[in-house]
Design a protein around this nucleic acid. Structure first.
Length: 480
RNA sequence: CGGGGUGUAGUUCAGUUGGCUUAGAACGCUCGCUUUGGGAGCGAGAGGUCGUGAGUUCGAGUCUCGCCACCCCGACCA
């Protein structure tokens, strides 16, 4: 990574340099002394805290309660569900020793908590009256990935995982859908992230799930990012952990379970979906700081400008706008650039000229459009501006995604399209039978994987573009 | 785990065929003065086990071998 002190590497020159520079220079995160693990700095963590606060409300609105389960899980638990252990065993961290003493039973550092949660559910669920049982936990997860990138894939990451048990498959299906809908709505309304909800193919589903739903997002480099998932686990885990309840009918039944998670990866999605050559672009709803006040003054009228700024501050406070004033010794130009790097939606320049005219100069991060606003008009202007920016960011993401979805009908067409460049071409849509081996072949030959079968067109059937068998409209993309 | 690359100041880097005795620059940092409408100027200053271990040599940042770490590209994945 090259790092010029002044200008950011343009996205078009090197996406990965741009990405890491934005993260370090906006002070979101830092590389840590531990391979694959990042330090989330206060500014990045403030974003995560806002995500947590908003999502926590939405999770609770689904009737889910927060709880906490241990970070250590007996290794044997993992092995009880065959697909699950196969999926996760290669990437779990094992605790084998305490000091120099070997442990009787190895412990894994949780790569996800299904197993230990169902071990507890087994005791908590006795009767149909105990259902549904819905818990969520905010925690850290460790998966020893071979290759890591800040936020997108780190050895340790933070997330939220919801786990529910239900009496019927229908109820569980509904929960899976409610979880996914909650994620997508949150991403859209709060993070200005446009996503496509869909179901994963057999090859891409969660290890141990009957089916996995996902919301997939297209980044500005046209690559795909799986940003959150919601799984129907069926009765597999319930059987493995003996989660049974006595039904109204007097018989024992296995519970139907679901799990769903959203991680700090979503911060990577915000960066990659909205950022530009000046740095981060944060939607106002998520931005820890929504407005940056930059004082501009000559030495002799610093006090007067400060006095004037306090009036601006009073107005912002009253409106509940999150703001900061940059009184540092740096030049105005420096402060402008810093504000842009950090993705602050609005800049409010307040200088002698503004003071004399009774205005402030307001600049939008998205398009650098400047306008003078009378002090008395701040209350009617700023909330609208923030709302406009939020909408603009979302609309531009939506437009970009839709412009880069290409339909093809044959595999030749598909190959020609995606192999003509090393860059991602976007999402490719076609009918696909969903066969695991066929998908492996596609991946081998094109590096593209199925992202999802969009729920919107889930019932549409057509001839698979490779095998000619009945298929569903499926989106392929180059994944992060 | 394969392929490539890099380790010298907080950061990005320079350091010639091994040699000038005190290892440099820029940016950043500290202090002072002057500045403030798009990354300010001048002056002074702090900051280094040259990744690590061994070897070759009168002499190693520079050569040899081992080790370690990190980055990028693949395979694997939230």
């Amino acid at each position: 990574m090259k790092q010029d002190q002044k200008s950011l590497t343009p996205r078009s020159t090197s996406q990965s340099d741009w990405y890491t520079e934005v993260i370090t220079r906006a002070k979101l995160a830092d590389y840590s002394p531990v391979r694959g693990c990042m330090v989330i700095r206060p500014y990045g963590y403030a974003i995560w805290e806002r995500i947590q606060a908003e999502m926590d409300k939405r999770i609770k609105a689904l009737g889910v309660q927060n709880a906490y389960f241990p970070v250590f899980i007996p290794y044997s638990f993992l092995q009880r569900e065959a697909d699950h252990v196969e999926g996760f065993a290669p990437e779990v961290a094992l605790v084998t020793h305490v000091g120099d003493k070997e442990l009787e039973e190895k412990l894994v550092v949780r790569p996800t908590s299904e197993t230990i949660i169902y071990e507890m559910f087994k005791d908590w669920i006795q009767s149909y009256r105990d259902l549904p049982l819905k818990v969520n936990q905010w925690c850290n997860i460790v998966r020893w990935e071979k290759r890591t990138t800040p936020f997108l894939r780190t050895t340790e990451f933070l997330w939220q995982e919801g786990h529910t048990a239900h009496a019927t498959r229908e109820e569980a299906d509904e929960m899976v859908k409610a979880g996914l809908d909650m994620y997508a709505a949150f991403a859209e309304e709060f993070l200005a992230i446009y996503s496509i909800k869909g179901r994963k193919t057999e090859a891409e589903k969660f290890a141990g799930a009957e089916y996995t739903t996902t919301f997939e997002c297209m980044m500005k480099d046209k690559k795909a990012l799986q940003s959150g998932t919601s799984h129907l686990l069926g009765q597999g885990f319930a059987k493995a952990f003996d989660v049974q309840y006595l039904g109204e009918d007097g018989d024992k039944h296995y519970a139907w379970t679901t799990s769903w998670g959203l991680s700090t990866r979503i911060i990577g999605a915000i960066i990659l979906m909205h950022g530009d050559d000046k740095g981060l672009v944060l939607p106002p709803m998520i931005a820890p700081t929504q407005a940056l006040i930059v004082p501009i003054f000559k030495a002799e009228n610093k006090d007067a400008v400060a006095e004037y700024i306090s009036k601006v501050e009073a107005s912002l406070k009253q409106q509940g706008i999150r703001y900061e004033v940059d009184w540092s010794e740096n030049s105005p130009g420096w402060k402008f650039s810093e504000g842009e790097m950090r993705g602050i939606p609005l800049r409010i320049e307040v200088g002698s000229k503004d003071m004399d005219a009774g205005v402030v100069t307001v600049v939008k991060r998205t398009d650098s459009q400047k306008q003078q606003v009378q002090l008395s008009d701040l209350e009617s202007t700023l909330p609208n501006l923030l709302e406009t920016i939020q909408t603009e960011i979302y609309e531009s993401a939506k437009k970009f995604t839709n412009e880069n979805i290409i339909e093809v009908s044959t595999y030749e067409e598909f190959k020609e399209l995606v192999n003509k460049t090393d860059e991602a071409v976007g999402f490719v849509k076609t009918y696909f039978c969903g066969d695991k081996d066929v998908e492996a072949q596609i991946k081998e030959e094109t590096k593209y994987t199925s992202r999802c079968v969009p729920l919107e067109t889930y019932d549409q059937e057509g001839k698979c573009f490779i095998t000619g068998k009945p298929g569903k409209l499926t989106i392929f993309g180059k994944a992060y």
